[in-house]
């Protein structure tokens, strides 16, 4: 789902997340990589919402918490 064609955008997204104090882990999901799926605990929801406009400016249409990556169960 996440691949090389999205690598540059993902790198910029990671930098943006890091600057916002969020875990710099993101993958591009969806048919065209339209979803920025960020690996973070659910408690980071508010901070991620604040970062959403910046991520969308990179070309993502949707910004979301990745629920199937293990970050939730590990309580990271």
């Amino acid at each position: 789902m996440s691949g090389g064609i999205h690598a540059d955008r993902e790198a910029r997204a990671r930098a943006l997340l890091e600057a916002e104090g969020l875990p710099p882990r993101v993958r591009s999901l969806g048919m065209d990589g339209e979803i920025a799926a960020v690996s973070a605990p659910l408690s980071a929801m508010e901070a991620l919402r604040a970062a959403a406009p910046g991520l969308r400016s990179l070309g993502y249409r949707y910004v979301a918490l990745d629920l199937a990556d293990g970050a939730q169960s590990t309580g990271e």
Binding site: M1, L29, I35, A37, L42, M45, L48, R49, A52, Y62, V63, A64, L65, D66, L67, A68, Q72
Partner: peptide, 18 residues
């Protein structure tokens, strides 16, 4: 509910922050 959604055949499950 994530395990349920994965069992339905989705490879990924995300929660839209907006």
């Amino acid at each position: 509910v994530v395990p349920t959604l994965l069992s339905l055949g989705f490879a990924g499950v995300v929660l839209d922050v907006e």
